[in-house]
């Protein structure tokens, strides 16, 4: 039964029970409040800030507090508003497209995030698959074990890798001691370290949607394929993988989108040699104190991510429909 039908059914029953008009009015008021409180909160703290970011990205840098020239206020009436409209400029955006540093940072971020997403999928799929085929008794424990690292600090988990990847770190010590390598590997402060950091930090985000897709799968399909003489590998590509596709899509989006704008991992593991847009924005803001340019960087980053974000939202909504 749809939600609307349930509501209609319950409310008609309530009326039949002899409810006063006043009580009904109170009920409508409460349900209005349930919607309005979180709605207004998100409009004020999530939506309006983006409008402000966009607005400031069009203003000029100034040596003042706050460090930008104010634009588009209604303080001087409508005439003042139109006068200010002329002061808006797309200088910051022109600046971003002309400076190779920014263009490179965007392109590198997208490539690094895409490679990391594929790597996370390759690492996460066998784990999720193994979990989904584990004895039913073990599954809740395995699920708990995947979620548990998520509860420990992100910063700490990234920090832990510094000690492992350093030239004199634990990985090199191990490899040198076992004689696999004779020279310490340089991993820290390279893109390899960023890949490791992203795969490690985002692995639970990949495994969980994959697991929930794979767990729902009907394994008698595989048995049927096997009975009909289909080799396991092609059974996997023809049956298992297509059926797990919603999980693959959700997992990849959950990793890719935040990874593009990631700051902590490239900063701590990538060092100064690597270039990513989250770090660029951070430096623009904290080191150069250039708020308008960092706003412009954020606006373009958001535009880059708007399609993946909308895909993610649609995937979420569809999953929700299916659960009903």
């Amino acid at each position: 039964m749809s939600n609307a039908a349930v509501t209609a059914a319950t409310s008609s029953r309530a009326t039949a029970a002899g409810k006063s008009a006043l009580a009904r009015l109170g009920e409508a008021f409460v349900s209005r409040l349930v919607i309005l409180i979180p709605y207004l909160w998100l409009v004020f703290f999530f939506l309006i800030p983006f409008v402000i970011v966009f607005k400031i990205s069009l203003s000029q840098t100034a040596i003042a507090i706050p460090p930008y020239t104010p634009v588009l206020g209604f303080g001087d009436g409508l005439a003042g508003f139109f006068a200010q409209l002329n002061e808006l400029s797309i200088d910051n955006y022109t600046w971003l497209t002309q400076d190779a540093l920014y263009v490179n940072a965007y392109v590198t971020s997208v490539i690094v995030a895409a490679i990391s997403t594929v790597l996370t999928l390759l690492v996460g799929y066998p784990i999720a698959y193994g979990m989904a085929r584990a004895p039913a008794m073990l599954r809740p424990t395995l699920l708990m074990l995947v979620i548990l690292p998520f509860w420990t600090s992100f910063l700490i988990r990234v920090y832990a890798w510094i000690g492992i990847l350093k030239p004199e770190g634990l990985l090199n010590q191990l490899l040198l001691a076992t004689g696999i390598i004779s020279q310490p590997l340089v991993i820290l402060n390279t893109y390899t370290a960023i890949f490791i950091g992203i795969v490690y930090s985002y692995l639970p985000f990949m495994v969980l949607p994959l697991y929930s897709a794979l767990e729902k799968m009907d394994y008698s399909l595989i048995e049927a394929a096997k009975d009909l003489g289909c080799p396991p590998t092609s059974a996997f590509w023809k049956i298992t993988f297509p059926l797990s596709l919603p999980g693959v899509i959700a997992g990849c989006l959950l990793v890719f989108i935040p990874a593009v704008g990631e700051f902590v991992i490239p900063d701590l593991l990538g060092g100064s040699q690597t270039l990513m847009i989250g770090k660029t924005l951070w430096n623009e803001f904290f080191a150069n104190r250039d708020w308008p340019v960092s706003s412009a960087v954020a606006v373009i980053l958001l535009l880059l991510l708007i399609v993946p974000i909308m895909l993610f939202q649609r995937a979420q909504a569809r999953a929700q429909e299916q659960d009903k």
Binding site: I52, V53, L254, G261, F263, L281, L301, I309
Partner: peptide, 10 residues
């Protein structure tokens, strides 16, 4: 999924 740098700045 929003990158934290964007949320923080905004």
């Amino acid at each position: 999924v929003m990158p934290e740098v964007i949320t923080g700045l905004s």
